[in-house]
Structures are given as structure tokens and as C-alpha cells.
Amino acid sequence: MKGELICAVCPVGCHVTAEWNETDLLDVQQAACKLAWPYIRSEIFDPRRVVTSSVPVVGGEIPLVSVKTDSPVPKDRMRDVMQSLAQVTVQAPVNVGDVVVSNILGLGANIRATKRIKKVS
């Protein structure tokens, strides 16, 4: 198979042409450096993303606490993660790094708070 991709490893953002079969990346053309290979390989065979969002916090100084997946999740599961997060609410106080949902959807990543939220009475 053949396709055009943007290498996002560095700000150069090479527009590369890649060739691959079912199991491996065969060729990368028009890339300025070798770093494109592992990136393009993962983009083709297992693209993953860190998902960041926010969840409501009860009794906090602001209404939302920001959260993230603590490791990248499969790109095509981002929507599922968002949908699952829509059901989640936490209670103040919250600290950076607190686990809000562990092993979300069994994807191996935890949802962790990324902001400290003080409790207000």
C-alpha cells in the first residue's frame, strides 16, 4: 500500500510518501531525516494519542478540572474515551496526578487530573 502522510516528529513537518504491506513499513520518501521511519510506522500500524479534556468538579473553586490520559490511547478510541468521560464527575479537592478513572475502557491508560482544585465550602 502507498500513501501520503505528514511527519509530525519535529517542526519541519515533512510531507512524505510511504509504502507498506500488512506487517511492515517498506519505504519512506521525501523525509528530511531518519526519525520519520518510526513515527510513520506507528502512524500506520498503531496510531495513538494522548486525550485531554475536563470533568466537572463538585465543591471546587472552579467548575471543571482538566484531565488527561497518562499514556497515549489508540486514535480510533478517542471518541469512546470522551463519551466515557462525559459520565464522570469528581469531588474537590483535586491534586495534579490524582487518578480520576483507572484503566479507562481497559485501554491501559488512567485518566489523571492535571490541575489542583481547592475545595470551597
Binding site: 475536563s54 466537572p56 463538585v58 471543571l64 459520565q87 464522570v88 464527575t89 469528581v90 469531588q91
Partner: peptide, 11 residues
């Protein structure tokens, strides 16, 4: 609103 704030907490 972005998130529904009427949900009950469930942590």
C-alpha cells in the same frame, strides 16, 4: 454548557 454539571459525583 460544555459538561453537564448536574451529574452526581462518582469518584
Amino acid at each position: 454548557e460544555v459538561k453537564d454539571l448536574t451529574c452526581t459525583p462518582q469518584r
